[in-house]
Design a binder for these strands. Structure first.
Length: 478
RNA sequence: GCACGGAUGGCAGAGCAGCUAUGCAAGGGAUUGCAGAUCCCUGGACCCGGGUGCAAAUCCCGGUCCGUGCUCCA
């Protein structure tokens, strides 16, 4: 089954054909770095990481652009309370973003575009919109006039001008004092006293939120591109506004071919968000779960579904991840990853894996196959199966669990993990062997009390003893 | 209020017309002094009411409940 992708605008899964054969261009709305990244950012980054990894696996030449909104009201606000330059705030949080995303095995995008590096392009775009009479100047900035393109309304969210005109129970009219209509949105905001600014034909100020993404995608990907992504919560008004701006500015329909939106992370059934105060930062989450186990947790549901975040799901994911890694390490101790293409079992596994991933990147289906290979590997190792068989299973995991799903630590880390363990094992070896000898003696005399005491002692230096028919085995657990 | 989604076993979560999803948990068993790890087996579900079909968790209609969006938000 060839690749099918769900498009938010048409609300159906379509067979995917890129604009240019063999190439895929992707733009994903990134974060506003005014505070450390939270789990929602992880979900977004991991979702599109998987999407680009899979497209590359299918041999597409992918250009993946994302951005940082490194100037905005909230950044300014934080900077004011800390009495530092706004750049200090954004830089600090961008650093945090890269730090945690690296740990989560999120591959770097081809470009992290920044608003502060795109000001001229943004001004150009607003100028064109002014020339085409889609925008007007008000006391506090420049606004896009929604009534100049009513037919473009509601392409993503199915709403009409009338629906939104009535507003959301009186919650409108609080922002953008100079608007003629509350549905209009800011393209350029005039700077108030003490705020950072850039000069423009309409005075000193900064870009509005929506225009930046139109300008950045145009700058890096051109007038039309394959995929535009982001969180579900950006559909309205952010992405609707982008459709207005880009299409009106460029005078063309369908600047974006496919709109993809990842689902939210929920806590107690409600969306995790900063305004509700129910968010957890990624760094904090690392206290209770390993980064790659968290990655596992966030890929355990297809990218469009909401994910309920709680302690149980963290624990379960940690268990799954441990099984994968431990089995992998156990096997790699015996042999190296090898060719799997001749293996019948792995061929059918691979087919189901492809079908799952090709069905709108269904990682949950892919996980089932990973689990079955892990199980098979476990079985093969304990049955002393043929080395070529173990090697094939390892090779498959290396490619699909590792390269495609990003669930395995990179080779260097695996090696250092193995070497580190090896070193520790050597250092501890004589002590452990001596104690185990004593314990065996105690066991033969049925002196369970002493035997268990020695086992506890070993546990206290992170050595886990497992009795087996061939005698006791031990391993180091961190 | 309006728009868009969703409702599957104790929990997580696929499937979206016919074939055991899967994992965790539970129960039983193998192994075991105990523990751990591993393996085998078992039970258990498709929100409610209609309809269409030989056949519906899966399609249609009508409810109910939940989430998201309508303000900044991944």
């Amino acid at each position: 089954m060839p690749l099918r992708i769900y498009d938010t605008r048409s609300r159906v899964k379509n067979f995917f054909t890129p604009l240019v054969k063999g190439k895929v261009s992707i733009y994903v709305c990134g974060i506003t770095p005014y505070s450390p990244s939270h789990l929602g950012h992880a979900r977004q980054a991991i979702s599109f990481d998987i999407i680009t990894r899979w497209l590359r696996k299918l041999d597409f030449e992918v250009t993946y652009i994302t951005n940082f909104t490194d100037i905005d009201d909230k950044i300014i606000k934080v900077a004011l309370t800390e009495n530092v330059d706004f750049q200090k705030i954004s830089e600090r949080n961008i650093e945090n973003y890269f730090h945690v995303m690296d740990k989560l095995n999120v591959l770097r995008a081809d470009k992290y575009s920044r608003v502060t590096e795109t000001i001229p392009e943004i001004i150009d775009m607003i100028s064109i919109l002014m020339d085409k009479k889609h925008a007007y100047i008000a006391d506090d900035g420049v606004y896009f006039e929604i009534d100049t393109a009513p037919d473009k309304y509601g392409q993503l969210t199915g709403q009409t001008l009338e629906m939104v005109r009535s507003g959301a129970g009186g919650r409108v009219g609080q922002t953008g004092g100079g608007k003629r209509d509350h549905r209009d949105f800011a393209l350029w905001k005039n700077a108030k006293n003490g705020e950072p600014y850039w000069p423009s034909p309409w005075g000193n100020g900064r870009p509005g939120w929506h225009i930046e993404c139109s300008a950045m995608s145009l700058k890096h990907l051109g007038e039309t591109f394959d995929i535009h992504g982001g969180g579900r919560d950006l559909m309205f008004p952010h992405h609707e506004a982008e459709i207005f701006q880009s299409e009106c500015c460029l005078g063309r329909e369908y600047v974006v071919k496919n709109w993809l939106h990842n689902g939210m992370i929920n806590v107690d059934g409600e969306k995790m968000s900063k305004s509700l105060g129910n968010f957890t930062t990624i760094s904090d989450t690392f206290d209770s779960i390993e980064p790659l186990a968290l990655r596992y947790a966030l890929l355990n549901a297809p990218y469009r579904q909401p994910i309920e975040f709680n302690q149980t799901m963290l624990e379960e994911s940690q268990i799954h991840y441990n099984r994968l890694l431990n089995t992998y390490l156990k096997a790699i101790n015996i042999t190296t990853p090898g060719d799997w293409s001749e293996n019948i079992f792995l061929n059918s596994v691979t087919e189901r894996f492809y079908d799952g991933m090709n069905d709108d990147f269904n990682t949950r289906v892919a996980f089932v196959e990973v689990q079955s290979v892990v199980k098979k590997l476990q079985e093969s190792v304990s049955n002393n199966s043929k080395i070529t068989h173990i090697s094939a299973l390892l090779g498959w995991l290396n490619e699909f669990a590792g390269n495609v799903l990003g669930l395995l630590p990179d080779e260097d880390k695996l090696n250092s993990l193995a070497i580190g363990l090896d070193k520790k094992r050597k250092n501890l070896s004589s002590t452990v062997e001596k104690l185990l000898e004593q314990r065996q003696k105690a066991r033969e005399e049925k002196d369970w009390k002493s035997a268990d005491r020695i086992r506890d002692e070993l546990n206290s230096i992170n050595v886990v003893v497992e009795d087996s028919p061939e005698g006791p085995k031990w391993k180091i657990e961190e």
